[in-house]
Design a protein around this nucleic acid. Structure first.
Lengths: 359, 359
DNA sequence: AGCGTGCGCTAAACCGGTTTGCTAAAGCGG
DNA sequence: CCGCTTTAGCAAACCGGTTTAGCGCACGCT
């Protein structure tokens, strides 16, 4: 082929070769009705033969839109992808984006700054994941002027948001354990994307914590601060967090993990430590990721419609982008507890005593 | 705020407000040395106050580069993300992209056409995942003229590629099972992205199949075509494929699954069918995804350095992009078998006989 | 023949930045 | 005080498309 080291073919080259104006070439592709049919055909043939590909950047600039949406993650991609929850969310986001012909641009903090990364991104709007109102860079992100839909953020009146009923899901989890007789708990929370003092009570973490608390209160249990440990929402993070708690002397009969990734990590550590689940320890996760059903033992967890969350976020965003009107719709999807095999009755003191006596 | 419904601030607005030329404003940000220091400072102050954000698209156009790389997936995002392998790969890709300040653009077939999606993408280069040379659109993709690094593709001499030693990994898996006494196998392959006649012998699928075959040959086993079933590389796909094979009357003592996702699906179906793993059935996966260690039972699988694969692909691509020289480097990373608990000795006829006799 | 209409196409403006070449003023050495 | 070199900043070209306004021409009608 001769086109190896040659300069990119521009629209002007095609116009010249076909003996028409740039306008005509543009019309041949985007507005054929404004040209005689055979002219359009001829132009397209010439273009094809020259290997002409319209430059997408130039097209974006003159059209004023990019046909792409940005997915904002408050953490580096390497950490965000290690949480299976994110993969599932992307399934939904990808589905909706694909079907409407929009591309997906992943945006994570550029050398620590989300706002800077946002500034660099050529997109028509953003889906922000877990970006709370108290995030230090939220203002910089907003300043882009582009429409944003917030997923799993703290309540942001005036903005479009998609969330789930974290609180009642968490409450159901806690009540389930209370009902099984547990009274001794450890909660493993995911660390907020940016360490920012106390956790926002209205963030996902805050809401789940509130749900746990009211659920536990049903059994008269109050959660001490020492019983809340924090770690990254990954399998490794959960494993580490539980091991630390255990080594620090905590001996809960039940663990409330704020994500399935963490819960699976707990299962792992428990196995390593020789702790029987659910015999000695019950574990409840959150998310109901695909894998939750396949781990050992199958994980009791709070289901949330992750894919649908992604889908609806994109659809909502597209409606804002296309209607040019800022819809501040707030959608909240349901959650419910799924009981599998990682939870069981609390080990009773009676049984321990019985075992100790037989002598 | 008053900036609500106002038009976007352009560089000319800043220039006007600061009483300088557009050039000066541009220099103030990108080339401050060419301006007196206080002038630059003043311009930046004015820009800040006006809330000026340079339009990334315009900047791309004039600079001729986008600082973004495209990730080409031959299947829709919704399916590609349901394979945990892809998430892990993206971890590596994201890591390398983040650290060099490049953005990530996900590109999946747009309404069925990858080439069209590629044409729409404003990026400086592509990392193509599993895009084989026999893919019908490969020519259209190449025509973009942008540098491409192929990951897990059929051997493409003249192109930059990253792959792993699929064949010897697969062979090790097969030999492991042979060593355990198995003689009755079912192979579950992942379906190629595009149905394209016979599988390319030099694709990932072809290479793994070859590895299986030589490994099995060590035990004198030859694989019948009826013992190869094909399905999507997802948990659900693997579950379905195994169930179908079982219902069709196959009674293997061991399953060779071409991905962990598939293998996990097999575990799932086996559990549903009341088949004991590894007592009655051994299962080996491929990839060694994070989850492989946590499923029930922990999965014996072929490890491949997925994250590193993503990282190296990006680094290789960036070197091509920046050096402007088309490096046709081909890298092959190692694989090795990791034995966990999903494989065990083949159920012996002897034992069955023994059990049947005691009467 | 004269006039209005619509078809087919084009020149030029535009999108919003960056970059090149140049000029005027200031600084400097002799 | 002159000529040479910097320095600071500007006007205009450029990136590669799309879109607007309008021109010339053929055709149909009266």
């Amino acid at each position: 082929m001769t086109t190896e080291r040659t300069r990119r073919v521009r629209i002007a080259d095609v116009a010249l070769a076909a003996g028409v104006s740039k306008t005509a070439v543009s019309f041949a592709f985007n507005n054929p009705d404004r040209l005689a049919e055979d002219t359009a055909t001829r132009i397209r043939a010439v273009a094809e033969q020259l290997g002409y590909r319209p430059d997408p950047v130039a097209r974006m600039l003159s059209q004023g839109r990019t046909r792409a949406i940005g997915v904002l993650t408050p953490q580096p991609l390497s950490v965000v992808f290690s949480n299976p929850f994110f993969g599932a969310l992307c399934e939904g986001i990808g589905l909706a984006a694909d079907e409407s012909g929009f591309g997906l641009y992943l945006i994570s903090p550029l050398h620590g700054s989300l706002a800077r990364a946002v500034g660099r991104a050529s997109v028509d709007g953003f889906v922000a994941i877990g970006l709370s109102d108290s995030h230090p860079e939220i203002e910089g992100v907003r300043r882009s002027g582009l429409p944003i839909v917030f997923v799993d953020s703290a309540a942001m009146p005036g903005d479009a948001t998609i969330e789930v009923d974290d609180e009642s899901g968490a409450q159901a989890a806690a009540e389930h354990l209370i009902g099984l007789g547990h009274r001794d708990f450890t909660v493993i929370a995911m660390e907020p994307p940016m360490p920012f003092g106390r956790a926002d009570p209205d963030s996902v973490i805050g809401r789940r914590m509130a749900g746990y608390r009211t659920g536990l209160a049903r059994g008269g249990v109050e959660l001490g601060n020492d019983r809340i440990v924090i770690g990254p929402s990954t399998v490794a993070g959960g494993a580490l967090a539980f091991r630390h708690a255990w080594e620090a002397g905590q001996r809960p009969t039940a663990v409330l993990a704020m994500s399935d990734a963490i819960a699976i990590g707990v299962l792992r550590s428990a196995a390593d430590l020789g702790i029987d689940v659910p015999g000695q320890l019950s574990v409840v996760g959150f998310d109901d990721v695909d894998m939750a059903a396949f781990v050992n033992p199958p994980l009791t967890t709070v289901h949330q419609p992750v894919r649908r969350k992604g889908e609806e976020a994109v659809r909502l965003l597209l409606s804002v982008i296309e209607r040019r009107t800022s819809v501040a719709e707030q959608r909240r999807l349901e959650t419910h507890l799924i009981v599998r095999a990682s939870t069981g009755p609390a080990p009773t003191r009676t049984r321990e005593v019985n075992r100790a006596l037989p002598v």
